[in-house]
């Protein structure tokens, strides 16, 4: 066991080195010229591999991070307005994925186009959840709210399982594994598109929250629920809208990763925990923070996966999370309210 792990560590430390040594051993008799060149090029190629692996992980981290950001923004809006930790967030995302899947397989609508349908539907779904369930528990103890959303998540994922079985659904588009190569680094095309859509949606959301009356009202509610109520803002209505927006964003994120990921009823749990980490990292309720947090987590996972081992990805993320909680509890960009 120990030997096995040692071997693994050696690879982690020196990617590319194996190749060189192996070449020397294997080709020493019949390929003398080859060996010479390889010896000359060894330090050079070692460096090149090193750089390629690094940038590869950095870029895919940033691109994946864009989608994470969208999930995080959704959660942060919900938390900001309601102070409710929504543990069903990943399951809402899962509903968005199934919606995208059926729009694609039944109506042949491209996932990136179908968000036009997914967004309003998911908004209504979220608003419904808020009106029927969460609004009843707004004054409950926080642990009860958490368990309520956990229960809702279980109901969602298991209803989907009964309806569509637990089979993995794979959504294959013509571009699902397409990539462009830039300087030896391959960049996934669907990820680039989804990143661009994320940026556009985030920008639109900003405009909505800062430039429209309703957006201002939502922000006021998030800042101080009671004061907002005194100022005549319909807080319950704002909560419904906020949960709707949060769900629409989670659903969109689901739609955007569908072409490059897979879909099954329990897929949400992967994203729920990530969403929290992102939100806390950026500062609960801060949209810029969540955007930054998403990208940060994407990069931490990707780069950490290369240099520490892909099995440790989650540990890296959680340790980062605890550090931020302890040393800057208001989040990287949040303003302290205490």
């Amino acid at each position: 066991m120990a030997a096995q792990r040692c071997g693994q560590e050696a690879h982690l430390a020196l990617p590319g080195l194996e190749k060189v040594t192996q070449f020397e051993g294997a080709g020493s008799k019949d390929h003398v010229p080859g060996q010479l060149t390889s010896l000359l090029l060894a330090p050079c190629s070692y460096f090149l591999y090193y750089m390629i692996v690094f940038f590869q992980s950095l870029i895919s981290g940033i691109l994946i991070g864009g989608v994470y950001a969208l999930i995080g923004i959704g959660l942060t809006i919900i938390f900001g307005v309601m102070r409710v930790i929504n543990f069903a967030h990943g399951d809402i995302l899962m509903i968005g994925m199934y919606m995208t899947y059926f729009l694609f397989t039944v109506f042949h609508i491209d996932p990136f186009v179908s968000i036009v349908i997914t967004i309003p539907l998911m908004f209504l779904f979220g608003a419904f959840l808020q009106k029927v369930f969460i609004n009843r528990a707004l004054n409950a103890l926080p642990q009860n709210q958490i368990l309520l959303t956990i229960g809702m998540g279980l109901v969602m994922s298991n209803t989907v399982m009964l309806a569509f079985t637990s089979d993995y659904k794979i959504l294959t588009t013509t571009y699902s594994s397409s990539s462009v190569e830039i300087l030896g680094i391959s960049v996934s095309e669907p990820l680039v598109v989804s990143f661009a859509i994320t940026v556009a949606i985030t920008a639109a959301l900003y405009w909505f929250l800062y430039k429209t009356d309703m957006g201002q009202a939502i922000r006021a509610t998030a800042q101080d629920r009671e004061a907002a109520q005194l100022m005549g803002i319909n807080v319950k209505r704002m909560s419904i809208i906020a949960f709707g927006i949060g769900s629409a964003l989670a659903g969109t994120a689901g739609a955007l990763i569908s072409p490059t990921y897979y879909i099954f009823p329990q897929v949400g749990s992967v994203f729920t925990l990530k969403a929290f980490v992102i939100t806390v990292l950026g500062g609960m309720g801060s949209i810029v923070g969540a955007t930054l947090g998403g990208v940060l987590i994407g990069v931490a996972e990707s780069v950490g996966g290369v240099y520490i081992g892909s099995g440790w990805k989650d540990v890296i993320v959680f340790i980062l999370f605890l550090l931020v909680l302890l040393f800057k509890p208001s989040g990287l960009l949040g303003t302290s309210k205490d």
Binding site: H11, Q22, G61, I64, V270, V306, S310, G311, D314
Partner: peptide
């Protein structure tokens, strides 16, 4: 046959690109 790379990944991650890039580097 020499095993030049071995790694156990945690199931369900949306992104294995960096790990695969590492595999590619060991050729």
């Amino acid at each position: 046959i020499k095993v030049v790379f071995e790694e156990a990944y945690s199931k369900g991650s949306p992104d294995y690109r960096s790990t695969l890039a590492k595999v590619k580097a060991t050729n």
